[in-house]
Simulated assay, not measured.
Amino acid sequence: MVNVIKRPGEALATRPLHFIWIADCSGSMHGDKINSLNFAIKEALPAMRSVADENPNAEILCRAVSFDSSAKWHIETPTPVETFNWIDLSIGGVTSMGAALKLVAKELETDKMGDRALPPVLVLLSDGCPTDDFRSGLNEIMKLPWGKKAVKLSIAIGAGADLDVLQQFIGHSEIQPLVANNSAQLVDYIRWASTVVLKAASSPDSRTPGQQASVTNVPVQMPPVKPIDSSLDVF
């Protein structure tokens, strides 16, 4: 059912916008990496709520998948950003990224997304290389209409991430993986992915499945790359 927000003299139908973090929780994420990731997402939530307030035509629904030796829903229920609370991730195991993408693909099927949704936003965060069949997981997403329409972003946590894999996930040469070399950069990039891109995706101009996309279904302006602060520890 489409929600309707009532305004004086009018009724405005809202459209769901699914925002999904896909987070690497393998053993190499120990220490500063996982702590910074948990902190960065919590820090981004107030700004995400502000974006939601500015875009009443969109109902922003958040959730998260985590992956280590297996993949699972870390926060499974699509939750309105106004009431969404982040649960800290823990680490262990290897990097089942392909399995995580298959979990996400199941939620992008039309019978679950509906036909009035705005383009979903998928944010992949990883510090390493997949240890399973990443390509088959990505194929599961890309064979779906909503998978093709999704805004896909990736953030490398440290220098050891597989940038080629993260670029394949994005699927557009004009959009590059962001590389966070320390906690401050990770906070900046997650805030960008969670607000600037979210605002673009929730705007009335976002494309729907019946429209033809050009380069990407939502215009994305990449953030400036900040110099590394030498006073901060590097991941």
Rank of each mutant, 00 (worst) to 15 (best):
P8G: 05
L186A: 06
V4Q: 09
A52E: 10
K143T: 11
Q185W: 12
N217K: 10
I155E: 00
S206C: 07
P56S: 00
V2W: 15
R7C: 05
R7L: 08
W86I: 04
L17M: 13
M222W: 02
T195N: 06
H30N: 11
A159S: 12
G210W: 10
I175H: 01
I34E: 09
R15Q: 11
I170W: 05
M29G: 01
G137V: 04
D88I: 09
A100F: 05
N181W: 14
I20S: 15
R7D: 09
R135I: 06
D233M: 14
L89M: 15
A100D: 00
P219C: 02
A150S: 11
V65R: 02
Q167A: 12
A180T: 07
R191K: 15
K226I: 12
H74T: 01
S202V: 05
P119M: 03
H30G: 14
S28K: 03
V94P: 02
S202M: 04
L17P: 00
I75R: 05
G158T: 02
W146D: 13
F169R: 06
A58T: 03
L198C: 03
P8R: 12
D164V: 15
L103A: 02
L45I: 15
L232G: 00
F19V: 10
E76R: 12
L153K: 02
E10I: 14
V65K: 00
A47P: 07
P8K: 15
H74W: 10
W21P: 02
W86Y: 05
D24Q: 13
T83C: 02
G98T: 03
K6L: 11
T208C: 08
T208D: 14
D53A: 14
Q221W: 11
P219Y: 00
T83G: 05
E109Y: 06
S69C: 10
N3G: 11
D53W: 06
D233F: 08
A100P: 01
L186V: 09
G9I: 01
L124E: 00
Q168I: 06
W192N: 06
K152Y: 08
D111I: 07
P56T: 02
E174M: 13
G171R: 04
S26V: 05
D229A: 04
A161F: 08
H172I: 12
V121Y: 04
K152R: 15
F169Y: 14
N182I: 07
F19Q: 08
M113Q: 02
K33P: 00
K6P: 12
R15L: 09
K143L: 05
V197A: 04
A156S: 06
F134P: 02
V234P: 09
S206D: 03
T216L: 04
I91R: 05
L144M: 03
M97L: 11
R116W: 12
A161I: 12
G171A: 01
G98S: 03
W21F: 07
E59A: 10
N217E: 11
V218Q: 00
P8F: 06
M222N: 03
G93F: 05
D68K: 10
T131R: 01
M48A: 15
